[in-house]
């Protein structure tokens, strides 16, 4: 019986908390469920190709599959970045609903065909944090001249707010923050931020992560390799991705709970909310920036329109469901 030995390259350092372990999980599910007919092995960033070359390596058949985040490919196909996270966009559950029932998967497949890949959502970080700041952020004017490391669409918004978006390799972030080379950085959420030790270099930890309300992680598969799979293996890969998608989100929720506690209680981190004034202004800027960006590219416009339509419905429903309940849950009663 022929065994399909596949390599999975990732944009994450090997075993990276939450993100890299998601890739490991996916490989494990596929290997077990296929009863040895598929054998996927995972490679960290740089082991076969550097992180941001993963999609080319999959697209051109150097390896069969990859794990990453869609916004890394915006230089190649601009529309990918909207699949990852949209400033003031959808929550994790809403994002998943959009993929399964809102036409998201179909649009994603269309976008990824341009990269010669099949796309699956394969993990979600949940709502991230706003970032680590060495300046108090009281009004939108405080963003003027702010030197912040913030990639992606969030960076576009910060730039529109008058900020100075800086690009730094990971290892240089803590010393740069420490010395004042940058004033602020976003990273992921408490779980990863604690691991990265950012609390040692910054004064304030702001929330919420308006720029990445729920970042979708992805599994991309070389189209020829995917089409060559028999239907049962296709189903196994698909279900393995659904399971991974759920497990990664669950892991983030569970670990963020603990990590936030550690940050606050053990490291006395000053955790602060962005004011409504800041969020209102950032939200307005986000809408403006996004609309301008997508206007330049029909595929981006298509995915954006679909997301925005879904977002409008979700906001209403969430107001009557999760938002309402979450507020109810923290009312001052004894439980």
């Amino acid at each position: 019986q022929d065994v399909r030995e596949w390599r999975m390259v990732t944009t994450w350092p090997k075993n990276f908390p939450g993100l890299g372990t998601g890739a490991n999980l996916l490989a494990e599910y596929i290997n077990k469920a296929s009863d040895g007919r598929m054998k996927v092995s995972v490679y960290g960033a740089g082991e076969i190709v550097p992180a941001f070359e993963a999609i080319d390596a999959v697209g051109n058949g150097t390896v069969e599959m990859g794990h990453g985040a869609p916004y890394y490919w915006k230089g190649k196909v601009a529309a990918t970045q909207y699949l990852a996270a949209m400033p003031f966009g959808l929550t994790a559950q809403e994002q998943n609903s959009w993929f399964q029932y809102g036409g998201g998967q179909e649009i994603a497949d269309k976008i990824y065909a341009k990269l010669n890949c099949k796309f699956f959502p394969s993990g979600n970080t949940g709502t991230q944090m706003g970032g680590w700041f060495n300046k108090e952020m009281n009004t939108i004017d405080d963003f003027k001249g702010l030197k912040m490391r913030i990639p992606g669409l969030g960076g576009e918004v910060i730039q529109a707010a008058g900020g100075n978006v800086v690009n730094l390799p990971g290892g240089e972030i803590p010393p740069a923050l420490q010395s004042g080379a940058i004033d602020a950085t976003e990273w992921v959420g408490p779980y990863n931020d604690l691991a990265f030790g950012l609390y040692k270099s910054a004064k304030y930890y702001y929330y919420p992560g308006w720029h990445e309300p729920a970042t979708t992680l992805e599994n991309f598969i070389n189209l020829e390799a995917w089409n060559d799979l028999p239907d049962d293996l296709k189903a196994i890969v698909e279900q393995a991705n659904r399971a991974t998608n759920q497990m990664v989100l669950s892991e983030f929720v569970a670990r963020n709970n603990q990590a936030l506690k550690t940050l606050r209680e053990k490291h006395n981190v000053d955790v602060r909310p962005f004011s409504d004034e800041i969020l209102t202004n950032l939200g307005t800027l986000a809408g403006k920036v996004l609309r301008e960006l997508v206007a330049a590219d029909p595929l981006s416009q298509e995915v954006f329109d679909s997301l925005v339509a879904f977002r409008a419905q979700s906001i209403t429903w969430a107001k009557y469901s999760e938002s309402a309940f979450m507020q109810a849950r923290v009312l001052p009663f004894k439980y």
Binding site: V49, P50, E53, A57, T62, V63, N167, L168, P169
Partner: peptide
């Protein structure tokens, strides 16, 4: 052999290494 297909990516990674 396809593993060698990663060479251009690795080279480009060197060309764009900030450090």
């Amino acid at each position: 052999m396809p593993l060698l297909g990663s060479l251009p990516s690795r080279y480009f990674g060197v060309m764009t290494n900030e450090l």
